[in-house]
Write a protein that binds this DNA or RNA. Structure first.
Length: 376
DNA sequence: AAGACGGGGGC
DNA sequence: GCCCCAGTCTT
């Protein structure tokens, strides 16, 4: 019943198979919407839909799996229940509430977005993509997601889930994060949302389908509402879909951490405002591209210490680095700097590995306590 | 156009 | 180990 417009052919470029992909956008949209209405998960941000719940959940969900977001979202909403509360909060408190989620820049951008909403939009989350994308940390995807899911606007969205689903339905080869593929997917998603009965249901359904039924590695085609319309399945080519065309290599960096303890207190310093773990706190740390022994480390410390000794080391992986934490202990007579008591530690934003290091340092010494990470 | 940016879980 | 994930910003 669907006729293909001349422009459809043109906008799909030089891949004839791709054009056929969403030849029946109305059927695809209807199948996704019906499936989502039946099989969509119950999630905290789906219980009450407001611009603010959409804003917070979308920021947290950027490059982060739903299961990791759920507990953080609920905690965050209790701590900062409204845009105004978030805008008025201290940045350190926002970072601390983000603790453990990673990609901490998102926390700072969300805070900045809340302030912008108060200043420029009277404290109400804007409803259009054009307004939303003016907010810090809000790109094309997040803007479309908030506009469609919270406010029912008929706008498309493409994240890695949607791109992968469309790739498979179209029987197209490629990586879901490839810019050319993403551009093509936006085009297809636009056509789908125009054919949808309920744009919010379609968009959320496409993402949910990608996240649950049609993941990158092993899709569950028997459960898929699009199985009959899927070109990859018809071709018997439902293989893995890569996210990145070319993975980047990890570099190795050594963080020489010096734990300075005085009774129940630990000496802390703040990290730089850019880069890894920006603006978060740590025990005094010397970063170097190779392992330093104690004699090399001592002169690089800003603080005069005694009894500097290496305790243990362990590795921590981030997306672009292997961070080798070389943990030391030392004493000082200086009272300068920021000293944090155990009870106050929760208020300081700390990376997960740093939190473990400090927690270990405050654990009462026991000769039988097992070493929690490999020593060398 | 390519990198940087966290962390945990799947396999 | 490698790869993944409701992306965005910077260079």
């Amino acid at each position: 019943m669907t006729t293909r417009s001349p422009s459809t052919r043109r906008r799909n470029g030089n891949d004839p198979a791709a054009t056929a992909a969403l030849e029946r956008p109305r059927e695809v949209a209807a199948a996704v919407e019906a499936w989502f209405a039946r099989a969509g998960r119950t999630l905290p941000w789906r219980e009450v839909r407001t611009g603010y719940t959409a804003l917070v959940s979308e920021f947290m969900l950027q490059q982060t799996q739903v299961s990791r977001v759920v507990p953080k979202f609920e905690e965050f909403m209790r701590r900062f229940p409204t845009v105004a509360a978030l805008a008025a909060a201290d940045e350190q408190a926002v970072l601390a509430a983000w603790q453990g989620l990673g990609y901490y820049r998102r926390a700072r951008l969300l805070h900045a977005a809340a302030k912008a909403i108060v200043e420029r939009f009277g404290g109400r989350v804007p409803e259009t993509v054009d307004d939303l994308v003016t907010l810090p940390g809000v790109g094309r995807y997040t803007a479309g997601s908030i506009a469609s899911i919270a406010f029912g606007q008929r706008v498309p969205i493409v994240d890695t889930n949607v791109a992968r689903v469309l790739l498979r339905v179209a029987g197209r080869e490629g990586a879901s994060g490839d810019p050319a593929i993403v551009a093509w997917a936006w085009d297809e998603a636009t056509r789908l949302v125009e054919a949808a009965s309920d744009p919010a249901r379609l968009n959320e359904g496409l993402m949910e389908l990608g996240a649950t039924v049609c993941p990158a590695s092993t899709p569950a085609c028997l459960l898929c509402p699009l199985a009959a319309l899927c070109r990859a399945r018809a071709n018997g080519e439902v293989g893995p879909v890569r996210a990145k065309p070319t993975p980047t290599r990890r570099t190795r960096v050594y963080h020489h951490v010096v734990v300075v303890r005085r009774g129940d207190e630990l000496l802390l310093e703040r990290r730089a405002s850019t880069g890894l773990w920006a603006s978060m706190w740590q025990a005094p740390t010397v970063e170097h591209d190779s392992l330093l022994d104690v004699d090399e480390l001592a002169p690089r410390l800003a603080l005069r210490v005694t009894g500097l000794s290496r305790v243990r080391e362990f590795e921590h992986q981030t997306s672009h680095r292997t961070v080798v934490f070389v943990v030391h202990e030392a004493r000082t007579r200086s009272r300068d700097g920021t000293w944090a008591a155990r009870a106050a530690l929760a208020e300081y934003p700390l990376s997960n590995p740093m939190r473990r290091i400090l927690a270990d340092a405050l654990t009462p010494p026991s000769p039988n306590r097992p070493v929690r990470a490999r020593s060398s």
